[in-house]
Computed example of a mutant assay.
Amino acid sequence: MTQRSDVAAGAPSGDRDATADAAPPTAAPAPPSTPPSADEIRRIGLSSALREVTAPLHRQAEKAGAISDIVRGRSSRAAYALLLRNLHAVYEAIERGLDRHRDSPAVRHIVRDEVFRAGAIALDLENLCGGTAAAAAVPLLPEGRAYAAAVAEAAAGDGVGLIGHAYTRYLGDLSGGQTVSQVLARTLGLDAGMRNIYRFAGIGDLDAYKNGYRAAIDRAAFETERPDTILAEAMRAFRLNIALFWAVQAAADGTATRAGAPVPVA
C-alpha cells in the first residue's frame, strides 16, 4: 500500500498543490473495490490502511469549498466562524463518544484529552465573533447537524467507529492544520486567540506525537473484530467533511450549493 501524510479533511497539507482548480468534481471517488480483510488491516497496520482507503476522498476534501477558500486566501472571518461553529458540533459529538468509551477495549487507545478540540473551538468562536452571544448566533447548518449525528451513530454500541472519525479530525489538526493556522494568521489577521484549535500546548513534539497516535490506532485494530468498520467510518467522515465545506462556502457566499458538489454517502 502507498504511503501519504496524515492530513485530514479539515486541514490541507502544506506540501499539496493549494492553487489547483477548486471546482467540485462531478462525483465522489469510489471506495476500494476490495476492502482489506481484518487480518490484512492488522498485518499492514490500521493507520496505513486508513491512509490508503481515504486517499481519493482526502484529495477531494483539500479542494472543497470553504477549505479551498482558506488555502487560497479567499476566505473571510464570517466564513471561518461559520466553519468553526459547525465543526464545534462535530467535535462535541466525537468527544462525548470518546469520553463514554474511555474503558472500551479498542477505543481506549485513542482517547487523548490533550487533543480534544471542542473547548478550543468555543474559545476561538467567542474571540472571533466578539463575545458569547455573537458566537451563539452563528448558525448550525444542516450539513453540520448531519455530520454530528453520524458521529453519534458511530458512538453507539462499542463505539469502535469513533476511531475513524478521530483519525480524520485530530491527525488533520496536528498535521495540515498547522499550515491552515499560518494561512489564517497571514490572510485574515487572526491572532493566536482565534486559532486555538491548532494550538496543542500540552504536546511538545508534534511529529513524535503523531507517530504515537498512529501506533495507538494500530493497536486498536487488535482489540476489535471489526477494524473494517473503522475504515468505513473514516471514509464517511471525509464525505461529511466535503459536504460541510461546500455548504459553508455556499452559505457564506449567499448562494445555493454549487452544481456538481459531491453529496456524501453517510
Rank of each mutant, 00 (worst) to 15 (best):
D6H: 14
A9S: 13
P12H: 10
D15W: 10
R16Y: 05
A18K: 02
A18S: 10
T19M: 12
A22K: 12
P25R: 12
S33Q: 13
P36N: 09
T54H: 11
T54N: 14
H58D: 15
H58M: 14
R59P: 00
R59Y: 04
K63M: 13
A64Y: 01
R74T: 07
S76G: 13
S76E: 10
A78K: 15
Y80K: 01
L83A: 07
A89S: 14
V90G: 00
L98K: 03
S104A: 15
R112K: 11
V115F: 04
F116H: 12
E126D: 14
A134W: 04
P139R: 07
L140V: 13
G157W: 02
D158W: 00
G159Q: 03
G159D: 02
G161P: 04
G164F: 00
H165Q: 05
A166W: 00
Y167H: 12
T168C: 11
D173T: 01
G176H: 05
V180C: 08
Q182T: 10
R186D: 15
R186L: 14
T187G: 09
L188I: 11
L190Y: 09
D191R: 13
A192V: 14
N196V: 01
I197D: 00
R199F: 12
F200P: 03
L206A: 08
D207H: 13
Y209G: 03
Y209W: 11
A220Y: 01
F222A: 14
F222Q: 06
R236S: 15
R239A: 14
R239P: 03
L240C: 13
I242Y: 03
L244W: 03
Q249K: 15
Q249C: 10
A250E: 08
G254E: 09
